[in-house]
Structure formats: C-alpha cells, structure tokens
C-alpha cells in the first residue's frame, strides 16, 4: 500500500507547509471574516433564502482563493522533484484531501460568522451538514483539478476563474437546492434526490480528475 503511505507523507507536507507559512491560511481566514462583515453591513437583516445563497457565494469565492495556490505555491523545480518520487494519483489525492479539509473549515467559519452577525437561519441541521461536507469535497476536487490546469499557464489567476466558474455550476445549483431544505422546518421529499445527485457529481468529478491527472502533470 505504497500509495496510502505517499498520500500520508504528502498530506503531512501540505499541513506543515501551511503551518510554517501562516500567511496563506490567515489570509483566507481574514478574507472570510471581511466578506461576512461586508455582507452584514450591506444587508443587516436578510431572508433565509438570501442567507443560504450568500453563504454559498462567499464559500465559492473563498474556495477559489484558497485553492488557486495549490499548484502554484511550489516552484517548478520542486514539482519536478515530486514527480520523480511519487505517484501522480497520490499527489492529486493528497491535495484534494487537504483542500477538502480546508474548505470544510472555511465553511464552518462562514456559518459561524453569519450566525454571529446575521443570525443562524439553519433550522434543519442535517441536510445542511450533508451539503457542507459533499460541497467541500466537490469544490475541492473541481478547483484542485482546474488549478492544476491553470497553473500551467502564465496567467493562472484569471484563467482559474474563467475555467472553474462555469464548471462548478452543477454542484453549486445542487448545493443551493439541498440547503433550501435546511432553512425550512420540514425537510421536503427532494432531499434524497439532491444528495444522490451531489454524491454522483462528486464521484464523477473525482474519477475524471484521477483518470486525467497523470496526463496533465508531466511537462
């Protein structure tokens, strides 16, 4: 089980890297805090539906910001060094797992921030937790893969937005639908379908990313 070992080592490396250069993670945290506060200043009070949509919009932009650097933070030389050592699947999976955990943290922070300033609109916690978990996974896979593509270009930041925003819409639409159940006292019957749909999209995207990454990584 060489691959699990590789994933473990790479994940450890990501965490250590993040811990030692605290500016990246603290930048994201500040970004989330500032956005939530701006939203609060703009709205003061909002409808539950607006709350849910704003939650996912903040989440979308925070995720893009957090993940864009996944492949650009390391120099070309260091990447070459990784390529000679590890399996491409392990490299991608370690980044996906790390980014999912990061997005999970970010989404709880947004939830907490919005609850603090605007109030907690989530009545039904279970569908919302499911949405956050699968949403973080879907966002992480899609954005990580697109950042791997855009890192190959000179203008990676703007290309990241152009490439990933249209691609994320199926996941985003399902997430908003699923979260609408969370703000109503009685969950509607559509929850099961939305969860299945979300899980299916996540798995398809993950499968495609793992399948295609070996062709993408070498230069």
């Amino acid at each position: 089980m060489q691959i699990f070992k590789e994933i473990g080592v790479l994940l450890n490396k990501e965490l250590k890297l993040e811990w030692r250069n605290k500016y990246a993670i603290s930048g994201i945290l500040l970004y989330v805090g500032a956005t939530v506060f701006i939203v609060y200043m703009a709205f003061f009070e909002m409808e539950p539906l607006t709350w849910v949509i704003l939650f996912w919009v903040i989440m979308l932009f925070a995720s893009v910001n957090a993940i864009t650097k996944s492949f650009t933070q390391e120099s070309k030389k260091r990447q070459l060094y990784f390529y000679s050592l590890v399996n491409p699947t392990a490299l991608l999976l370690s980044k996906v797992i790390y980014n999912s955990l990061l997005l999970l943290l970010i989404s709880f922070l947004i939830w907490g921030g919005l609850s603090l300033f605007v109030g907690n609109m989530v009545v039904n916690v279970q569908p919302f937790l499911i949405a956050i978990c699968f949403g973080s996974l879907g966002f992480a896979v899609t954005f990580t893969f697109v950042s791997a593509i855009s890192a190959k270009t000179d203008n990676s930041a703007s290309l990241m937005a152009i490439l990933s925003f249209p691609l994320i819409i199926p996941i985003l639409v399902t997430l908003v639908n699923l979260s609408k159940n969370a703000i109503e006292p009685l969950a509607s019957e559509g929850v099961q379908g939305d969860v299945t749909m979300l899980l299916a999209i996540d798995l398809i995207v993950l499968g495609m990313a793992l399948l295609l990454y070996p062709y993408l990584w070498r230069d």
Binding site: T142, F145, I162, L167, L212, Y215
Partner: peptide, 28 residues
C-alpha cells in the same frame, strides 16, 4: 485556455484534458 499556451504539445495535451473533464461535467 488554448490561446494561453505557446508550445503546441502542451496546448494540445492540456486542452484535451480540459475538454474531456468539461464534457463529463456538462452531462449532469
């Protein structure tokens, strides 16, 4: 994306990967 690359080999490979990925996401 294609116009962002100079090298034809890199352009072909990365845009092919994106094309497959995008097509699969378009199905849902």
């Amino acid at each position: 994306l294609r116009s962002a690359f100079e090298d034809p080999e890199q352009k072909g490979r990365i845009s092919a990967v994106y094309n497959i990925f995008a097509f699969v996401l378009l199905i849902p």
